[in-house]
Write a protein that binds this DNA or RNA. Structure first.
Length: 350
DNA sequence: TCTCCACAGGAAACGTAGGAAT
DNA sequence: ATTCCTACGTTTCCTGTGGAGA
């Protein structure tokens, strides 16, 4: 049913639809590069999955075709200043700094290597700009950046004055797509990645509608519908496959998110998963009760309450857990109890 | 209304792994 | 081989918040 799986990947270079104005702003931001000058710094904001990364990728590819331009894309979440600088250097030719290279050394190395206009994409900065890192990047004459975040008000309020000033006229908001726009996007993926005539326009519209403006969710759902149809030996996608597609797509995203996390997160996740709803207090009690069993014969040791809070926050960020309540009385619950940790964890059921 | 306590999350402090310098 | 130095993950410390009970 699926002829080209690659068409449904996040980084598939599809044409950008229904983003003409935003495309034009971003294109003019990098235009000075063609004259050998530094581009403008840009802040792009919008919900998860509305195409912020796809838009920057497209503009940089376009720029590269006109004039080969060094660039780097950094996943900023959880990176220190040094980590961010190192990640940039690793993507520029000829540099591979060790993890213990001093920050100042990394700064000097970056300054030395950026001799022509270079564009850095700071992806999903966790809404927290590292002001030190941005100050370093600003100090490099030929380097410009495009920062991507969810909430620009948060981002700007935590940025320093110079950074705020830099993006004053270069802040770009991406709205969620309408159902009709999403349907257009799905039609292109259908054409490129599926056998002909296996799914109708009406079915695409249903998928688009359920995705609620989020392109990534819609595209994953389309893939899920096709996979479900194939598994069920349907010759074309049937309505029941469409109905089940969104849940399948969501499940897959969560499974991948969980798989990407290290051991301590899995322990915390499993503790919550085995209960319906769990207060912070009960969570810690449960952790204390099982830590000896779970961490026995492992080279890792149980973590403090403070660090457990950090792990739980990340699990919520990744949409694996839900939480309710600000201070006292906060509760956690699992989003999909059928998703279990792929690690072999002996977390005893109470 | 006041005091006490539990909790969230920011910031500083700390221990450690591992690359660089000698 | 040894010592020094650095980033990273974690713990410790701290401040702010809000509910329970006097």
């Amino acid at each position: 049913m699926i002829t080209k799986p690659r068409v449904f990947d996040d980084d598939y270079p599809a044409t950008i639809q229904h983003r003409e104005a935003e495309l034009s702003v971003l294109t003019s931001a990098v235009e000075p590069v063609l004259e050998g000058e530094r581009g403008h710094d840009v802040l792009i904001h919008g919900s998860k999955g509305v195409g912020k990364s796809a838009l920057t990728r497209h503009v940089l590819e376009q720029l590269n075709r006109q004039q080969p331009t060094p660039s780097a894309r950094v996943q900023c979440l959880g990176l220190s200043t040094a980590g961010l600088l190192r990640s940039i250097l690793q993507q520029l030719p000829g540099a591979n700094p060790a993890t213990t290279t001093a920050r100042e050394t990394l700064e000097r190395e970056l300054e030395a290597r950026v001799t022509e206009p270079t564009v850095i994409v700071l992806d999903e900065g966790g809404d927290v700009p590292d002001t030190d890192a941005l100050a370093v990047l600003r100090g490099i004459p030929k380097l410009s950046w495009i920062a991507i975040c969810h909430n620009h008000n948060d981002w700007l309020s935590r940025a320093d004055d110079e950074t705020r000033h830099a993006v004053t006229n270069w802040t770009l908001g991406l709205d969620k797509y309408s159902t009709a726009e999403l349907t257009d996007i799905l039609q292109e993926r259908r054409r490129a990645g599926l056998e002909p005539n296996v799914i109708s326009d009406e079915q695409l519209a249903t998928i688009a509608d359920e995705a609620a403006g989020i392109a990534r969710g819609a595209i994953y759902s389309l893939r899920a519908a096709a996979n479900l149809a194939a598994e069920r030996s349907h010759s074309t996608v049937e309505d029941i496959d469409v109905t089940d597609a969104y849940a399948r797509a969501t499940r897959r995203m969560r499974e991948e998110a969980l798989k990407s996390l290290p051991f301590h997160h899995h322990v915390c996740y499993e503790i919550v998963r085995r209960r319906d709803r769990l207060s912070s207090h009960d969570f810690h009690k449960r952790y204390d009760a099982i830590e000896n069993v779970v961490y026995a014969d492992r080279d890792q040791t149980p973590i403090s309450k403070r660090e457990r809070r950090t792990k739980l926050t990340k699990l919520v960020d990744y949409d694996l857990l839900g939480s309710d309540g600000d201070t006292l009385g906060r509760e956690y619950w699992v989003q999909d109890a059928s998703i279990s940790s792929p690690l072999d964890l002996t977390v005893p059921v109470p």
